[in-house]
């Protein structure tokens, strides 16, 4: 086992044991924090497929995070009011079942990522960054003025959605759900990186010209990666909305995109567990710094700057040393 693999094992165990301890110690809020780490980590794992594996610096992933959130909000609000989503040409009812909501969230955010990706991937580099950012803003403004689903007020769901056989209102049980989904996504991401697809994508990122001469079409590979990436981030959005029992346009704002990206750099870009470690550090900082200063963003900014400038591998890079720069 490499040092990174050992560290990853330690992180997954710690993220599981901490809430179990909190459960035993009757500190439900600590469980909520751990759940937040798992869900935001999941969003980061999604972004990491585009960014770490595909080299696509997307500053618009909040769009998919928010679409996932709204998939949950819209379905659950219709179920809550017993008003069907549509009656014609066929009847679609709302639902409070998590698995169905997840599937809808995955599909909706995948379709959005496919459309945005198809346009944005016509360009590259800094254009790509600005275009993804702009499309994200477009959806943000749309959500604000979309009064049917609350506009800026957002949508409140009074009771958390259900999962067969579990009591999702119990913090620890909801944590387990988020944790299992996170682990499945990480497993998927690691398989993907080692698959023929992942290798070809990596080749297209590092030496695009050479990849094209052997018949790899970067556009298609990148579009698939971007779509998968958006879908996973969308799933995280649905879970995040369920954690808060609330969804609003804030989930779509460009600051959210920036924060998801910050998780990656804190933990270590293109590292399998980078987003999880980054999300954990971010939330710990928010809790600790937020407590003793109203101006904690300054400290966060300075820390982020130092990491970008001087510790490029992020925290995993510090612990496990500079390794291969791809997952």
């Amino acid at each position: 086992m490499t040092r990174e693999a050992t560290f990853n094992g330690f992180v997954s165990l710690a993220l599981l044991l901490f809430p179990l301890w909190a459960w035993w110690a009757d500190e439900p809020f600590m469980i909520t924090l751990a759940t937040k780490v798992a869900i935001l980590g999941l969003a980061g794992v999604g972004l990491n497929i585009a960014l770490g594996l595909g080299g696509l610096v997307s500053l618009g992933h909040a769009a998919f995070f928010g679409i996932g959130g709204y998939a949950m909000g819209i379905l659950a609000s219709h179920a809550q009011s017993y008003a069907p989503l549509m009656e014609w040409p066929f009847l679609i009812e709302g639902t409070k079942s998590m698995p169905i909501i997840w599937i809808v969230a995955l599909i909706a955010s995948a379709v959005a990522a496919l459309l945005i990706g198809a346009l944005s991937l016509r360009t590259s580099g800094v254009y790509f960054i600005m275009i993804t950012l702009a499309f994200g803003q477009m959806l943000y403004y749309f959500a604000i003025s979309w009064s049917a689903y609350g506009g800026e007020d957002g949508l409140s769901i009074y009771v958390r959605n259900g999962f067969p056989g579990m009591n999702t209102l119990d913090p620890i049980q909801f944590f387990i759900i988020a944790y299992v989904l996170l682990m499945i996504a990480i497993l998927f991401a690691s398989r993907l990186a080692r698959s023929a697809f992942g290798l070809a994508l990596n080749a297209a990122r590092q030496t695009p010209v050479r990849a094209e001469t052997v018949g790899i079409v970067p556009y298609r590979l990148q579009l698939v990666a971007f779509t998968l990436s958006g879908a996973i981030t969308g799933l995280a959005g649905a879970l995040f909305a369920d954690l808060n029992r609330f969804v609003s346009p804030t989930m779509l704002s460009w600051q959210t995109s920036g924060e998801i990206m910050v998780f990656l750099i804190l933990g270590g870009t293109a590292r399998l567990f980078g987003p999880v470690v980054g999300a954990a550090v971010f939330i710990i900082l928010e809790e600790i710094l937020g407590d003793f200063s109203d101006y904690w963003h300054i400290h966060l900014g300075v820390l982020l700057l130092l990491i970008v400038l001087f510790a490029r591998g992020g925290i995993i890079g510090l612990v496990a040393g500079e390794e291969k720069r791809h997952a």
């Binding site: 439900p28 609330f246 609003s248």
Partner: peptide, 12 residues
């Protein structure tokens, strides 16, 4: 001014 932060603070 972020709703999700407010909900989490309320839970806390």
């Amino acid at each position: 001014r972020k709703p999700e932060i407010a909900v989490q603070l309320a839970d806390k």
